[in-house]
Design a protein around this nucleic acid. Structure first.
Lengths: 103, 103
DNA sequence: TTGATAGTTCGATATCACTCGAACAATAAA
DNA sequence: TTTATTGTTCGAGTGATATCGAACTATCAA
């Protein structure tokens, strides 16, 4: 389908990561992935158009917070847990424990 | 001078905090405060106009990350460490350990 | 081959954020 | 009282971001 490229966290500064996490929809995406491990775009309940969802996934990839692999017509995304945890320890715990109501 | 009001962290959601931290200048402000405890606006070396600095301080206050008291013509700001640490554990460590070069 | 499914990309729009200079208010010092 | 210092507020310009529909590509299933 497409060869997805994520940013390496070595090259991502904190403001970029924070910017990526400043959208409630993207927080919801990460929370869903923390729960389920690996999900396709359409398996995450966001009330926005699919073009917007695709955009949010791209932002997260560019921040190094998402890795995506293709599988048939789907693209399955997950969080590179070890890399995120080593570069930004505690960040995922903050995301996980953030209750935000429904998006 | 002015009676500063900060947001209570009880009412601040994660995306708001992340948004506040998505600017390199504001990260620099927090880092300087982590180092020095309490500082006035003009004691933080940012290469932007003072109107902009004031704006950044306001954003941080609205995110509950800053408390400000007035002292003569100065206004001294500091981080409500305990509140931030209890609501968003690990957040300040991320800020502290983020090297970003000169702003 | 045809149709359905999954995402991306492309404009376009609307809103929000960063920045600044200028004018202002409040305090302190002379 | 006049002057200097500190920071805020306002208005405007500029750029970034969120969102969408529509068109497109790629894959799978009939």
């Amino acid at each position: 389908m497409k060869d997805y490229s994520s940013a390496s966290l070595d090259e991502v500064a904190l403001p970029t990561v924070m910017q990526a996490l400043s959208d409630p929809g993207r927080i919801a995406i990460l929370q869903a992935l923390l729960e389920n491990g690996e999900l396709a775009c359409n398996e995450i309940p966001l009330k926005v158009a699919k073009a917007t969802v695709s955009h949010h996934f791209a932002i997260l990839r560019e921040a190094g917070l998402l890795q995506t692999r293709t599988s048939g017509t789907k693209c399955l995304s997950s969080i590179p847990m070890d890399a995120v945890e080593s570069h930004f320890p505690g960040l995922l715990a903050l995301v996980k424990n953030s209750g935000m109501g429904t998006i």
